[in-house]
């Protein structure tokens, strides 16, 4: 079986590495590495697992971002993807999730036929989890989000979709959109040979012109949502440090203070 799979990936700053300047109360951005978004690595891995089983499978990774997002595509190719396409244009900058899904939908239409689109559930810099479903809507295909188990029988797919208190078992047909969570798999590493080939690979860059996308549907001005204000929350005032000679006395002091604010019943 030769499947055509598209994987949506995003290069993100590793937000766990971001620190706040305690004096100025601003973000310290320096030294924060750019990485392949975690859930997207799971999305790519699931596509690669299908390719392991059916080597004729063709995997295209698309990403939208600035020119340096090409590095992410090289990483994906080195993991085993067949093709990387960078969607990059100043006209697409500042797109919110709606505008981003319009640009991605144009890219998918330009790529042509596909059987499955895998995306990560959400990116760690925005945490919206909106682009996957919005892209599925723009393409008119069914979706399952929060996929934690995947299997297929011919063109019928069975997945487990994680819920807060359990899971659902869902069946659907290709073509479809599936968004991956961490529980789905463990992403593989790049191979040496893969890296060697990946850096030489031809990575096309598609801008608004190549996408033939309506400029009223992409970019900052077209986006239905706008950032009105942004701020770093003022740190909550420092509380009381409890220091007593013994652990017993410390615990006792804590309980006394707690009882002033909380009724122990």
């Amino acid at each position: 079986m030769a499947l055509k799979i598209i994987v949506c990936a995003k290069q993100v700053p590793d937000t766990n590495e971001v620190k706040i300047d305690p004096v100025k109360n601003t973000l310290i951005r320096e030294g924060v590495p750019s990485i392949l978004n975690h859930d997207d690595a799971n999305a790519l891995e699931e596509a690669l697992k299908i390719k392991d089983q059916y080597p004729d499978t063709h995997i295209t990774v698309i990403t939208m971002g600035p020119p340096q997002a090409k590095d992410l595509l090289i990483e994906c190719l080195a993991m085993g993807a067949d093709k990387g396409i960078l969607i990059s244009d100043r006209a697409l900058g500042g797109s919110d999730t709606w505008a981003t899904s319009n640009a991605l939908a144009a890219a998918v239409k330009k790529i042509g036929d596909f059987d499955i689109i895998f995306a990560g559930r959400q990116a760690i810099d925005g945490d919206t989890a909106q682009v996957g479903p919005q892209l599925a809507e723009k393409l008119g295909i069914p979706q399952v989000t929060y996929v934690k188990e995947f299997s297929m029988d011919g063109k019928e797919i069975t997945v487990k979709r994680a819920l807060e208190d359990g899971y659902e078992v869902i069946k659907l047909q290709m073509p479809c959109m599936l968004t991956a969570i961490k529980e789905l798999n463990t992403p593989r590493y790049m191979t040496i040979g893969g890296i060697y080939d990946a850096v030489k690979a031809d990575i096309p860059v598609w801008g608004a012109k190549e996408l033939e996308v309506d400029l009223n549907k992409v970019g900052l001005d077209a986006s239905p949502t706008n950032v009105f204000r942004s701020f770093t929350p003022a740190p909550k005032g420092k509380g009381v440090m409890i220091e007593r000679d013994t652990v017993e006395e410390t615990a006792k002091a804590l309980l006394e203070m707690l009882q002033e604010k909380y009724i122990i019943a």
Binding site: V18, L27, D125, D127, R229, S230
Partner: peptide, 17 residues
């Protein structure tokens, strides 16, 4: 909402739709 991994807060508006 928290943005940027919870490192900043952003207030979002939907002015035209």
């Amino acid at each position: 909402r928290p943005a940027f991994g919870g490192n900043i807060m952003a207030t979002i508006i939907t002015p035209r739709t």
